[in-house]
């Protein structure tokens, strides 16, 4: 196999898959931070929740995870609305930092509940190894990777359509850009908040399903993704959904490509440390340009 094909099969494609996952998670974090003004620490565990909801659908129906995806997204969105109603809404008129504590508590509560319901064993959607599809004799792409990257593109187009063509979507962008101005023009804040949670949670669930599909399901999977997702949102600029998409892609690719032997034959960075890339990028951004690449807000 040529060097280029090794690069594409083992570094570029996994990077794109990881980037898709980060991007989907980061859109929600960025929107919630921009519209509700707080860092939502339960976002990772919402991803876990989506992944496990899909696991139940797959286990009951024996369907492909792709078919379980919409149900998991809807289920997670409904639960997110419930969480907002009971645990976040009481603080809407208070200091937003209390919301960060509340969301941290929700993260732990969600994870505990997932462990009580589904147990702590490592799960997966399918048994056995699926053969990758082979193109041009040597370009090997796992079927699930095509589905993951393809669905992410479709979901991003839907997000773009929602934000630019629908009334609520435009209102969301307006609130994110300038909450005072949005309120003065009579934008219904409650509806915008609900829409934000539904959109953010549905995308988080999709990201969770893709992580579970690509690797395995673990109760800590979402929490462990929280750091790269926040890093993606900050890289793109808080409150900038398109920035979050780009930020997620950049960080996903950077993590995978950092282990490629760019110089000599050794990996540039030991694979055990590749998740540290997200943190490094975030620290650089916080020092150099906290507003992110797309000039989001700094709080």
């Amino acid at each position: 196999m040529g060097d280029l094909l090794i690069f594409v099969n083992f570094y570029l494609l996994p990077g794109l898959v990881l980037g898709s996952i980060y991007a989907l998670g980061a859109i929600g974090v960025s929107l919630v931070f921009g519209i509700l003004r707080f860092a939502h620490f339960a976002h990772g565990d919402m991803m876990t929740l989506g992944a496990y909801l899909a696991l139940t659908v797959v286990a009951v129906t024996g369907a492909n995870p792709m078919l379980a995806l919409p149900l998991a997204m809807i289920g997670t969105a409904i639960i997110a609305l419930g969480i907002d109603r009971w645990f976040y809404k009481p603080f809407h008129d208070k200091s937003t930092i209390v919301l960060v504590i509340a969301s941290f508590g929700i993260a732990l509560m969600l994870r505990s509940l997932i462990r009580v319901i589904w147990g702590v064993e490592i799960e997966s959607y399918s048994v056995g190894i699926s053969r990758p599809l082979v193109f041009f004799d040597s370009l090997r792409i796992a079927e699930r990777h095509i589905w993951i990257i393809g669905s992410t593109v479709v979901l991003m187009l839907i997000v773009h359509w929602l934000l630019t063509r629908t009334r609520t979507g435009k209102a969301m962008r307006a609130v994110s850009d300038s909450p005072e101005l949005a309120r003065l023009t009579g934008i219904p804040t409650e509806r915008v908040i609900k829409a934000t949670w539904m959109l953010g949670a549905a995308l988080a669930a999709a990201a969770g399903v893709f992580v579970g599909w690509d690797t395995q399901l673990q109760t800590t999977m979402g929490w462990n993704l929280l750091l790269p997702i926040f890093a993606s949102a900050i890289l793109g600029g808080i409150g900038r959904p398109y920035g979050a998409m780009a930020g997620g892609m950049v960080i996903g690719l950077a993590e995978e490509l950092s282990t490629y032997p760019w110089i000599g034959t050794e990996p540039l960075l030991s694979p055990g440390y590749k998740t540290g890339i997200a943190f490094a990028i975030m620290v650089v951004m916080l020092i150099w340009r906290p507003a992110g690449l797309l000039r989001g807000r700094v709080y």
């Binding site: 960060v100 926040f230 900050i234 540290g276 975030m282 916080l286 906290p290 700094v298 709080y299």
Partner: peptide
């Protein structure tokens, strides 16, 4: 920066340490 960023960064420290 606002406290939220500090919170995110402290999670990062815990994560790097785990690695």
């Amino acid at each position: 920066l606002r406290s939220d960023y500090l919170a995110i960064a402290t999670i990062g420290i815990a994560e790097i340490l785990r690695l």
